[in-house]
Design a protein around this nucleic acid. Sequence first.
DNA 1: GGCTGACTTCCGCTCCCCGGAAGCCCCGGC
DNA 2: GCCGGGGCTTCCGGGGAGCGGAAGTCAGCC
Lengths: 261, 261
Amino acid sequence: MGATRGDGRTVTSKVLALLAAYEGGDGALSLTDLAARADISLPTAHRLVGELVSWGALEKDAQGRYAVGLRLWEVGQNAGRQLRDTARPHLQDLYSLTQETTHIAIREGHEALYIDRLYSTKRVPRASRVGGRLPLHATAVGKVLLAFDEDWVREAYLHRPLEQSTTRTHVNPVRLAEELQLVREQGHAVTLEEMRPGSCSIAVPVRLPGGGIAGLGLVLLSTQSANLRKHLPALLGVAGRIEEAAARPGGGGLVLRPRRS
Amino acid sequence: MGATRGDGRTVTSKVLALLAAYEGGDGALSLTDLAARADISLPTAHRLVGELVSWGALEKDAQGRYAVGLRLWEVGQNAGRQLRDTARPHLQDLYSLTQETTHIAIREGHEALYIDRLYSTKRVPRASRVGGRLPLHATAVGKVLLAFDEDWVREAYLHRPLEQSTTRTHVNPVRLAEELQLVREQGHAVTLEEMRPGSCSIAVPVRLPGGGIAGLGLVLLSTQSANLRKHLPALLGVAGRIEEAAARPGGGGLVLRPRRS
DNA sequence: GGCTGACTTCCGCTCCCCGGAAGCCCCGGC
DNA sequence: GCCGGGGCTTCCGGGGAGCGGAAGTCAGCC
């Protein structure tokens, strides 16, 4: 006797739940694991995953576990491509100038989403990765994104509990608000071991056509923190270049809409 | 009277067909366009797209058109991440050494899929982009991928019609087979305006653990073609570094499975 | 104002999808 | 070799999620 279907969820929502299972960032998952994370019964997961694999959204590895497939990556590359494509060469120039880890991020909900990043083989402890997220208040790009976003966004963010990533993370809402005010006045933000011990960072805003904001930043070893502001002219110059390129017709338009609460 | 549902397609396949509509690479699509490309009735497309938007797989822009959403991009970043993450810093080093457009690709079906690419603001006509594909026989990385892949893959490829991208594209199967033999012997491949007028390229193979192959290449203005082989030592050196990094436990494993035909 | 084209909503009929149950396969313990 | 367990795969009957024709809405254009 077939069980009643009535879990009220649509097929689409289940397919998406399967994809969401990979948001944590841990590579390959077993079918059972996948079914559990998506909260789907094993037989159903088996069928849906089978379809996803045959399309190429997922791939089954030698151990029978499932990972995100290249075809999904390929389709995903179309998201926010304009910004990435226009910014990439300038990011490259910035890296050439500074020889430091360089990245660009935008705000997604209450986190900084890292859109692109450059670094060589010899460098800095990495906290984030391309496609990854970090809290807004513990990174320089995050502070920039917060400082230059609309007031209500900043207000809302400061009224949430602020995660303490290291002992040096600024988590006092009042002092953080003051700091953000300073960031707005100075036009740049810095951190010192607020996200990870061993690294410090500096960032400036990039104003996108349509009112959006991106954060352009550098990460250095914290032993080099005295040199942070030395890179400010380069950062500001490159940010300006990106703004120009993005403003040109066919440039880096990007629709920014908050999601998940 | 509700029409008979019996088009035989699953909901999942329709969702995937909607995503596949973006594979062409043309940014935002109207609902009607989307429905047509996915071959889905308008009301159904409307409902499915609504779900995709509310999850974040698609985004609706100001003109009411739909583009791929950042959340899908984010999930997609998990695909082949190991290879990309291990290769990126070395690609960066290669760029620093040569100051030329640098890219890495793998074979996907009968095309080269560009996994990553670096370039500065002042450079070369771009034929490909990250996440994009080009024919195997008209690019240096493609020739490498073909030359060092398994025999049956090469055979099968040479028996297909070979697209003539420019007047200089090598499309004679017999001569191409000889050229690939030479590529195997020499350990590198070159092209001169075979994909796009104005650019030439050189590439070497990167042997991945598990038997896969990636192609590591440079693109130069064709006026610089005399300098192509000057970069060979750098290419070979960096390729070796990537191989080492990928072979290290936790390195760049990547399951390569052909798909679509 | 009327027309066209694109999007959105409605609604009742289906048939695709669901998940419990059972079978299968591999592996590890004894 | 036998047994037990965990994970995967297949089967199947019942029912509600999904379907699309049709009608409604809206904006732009002549």
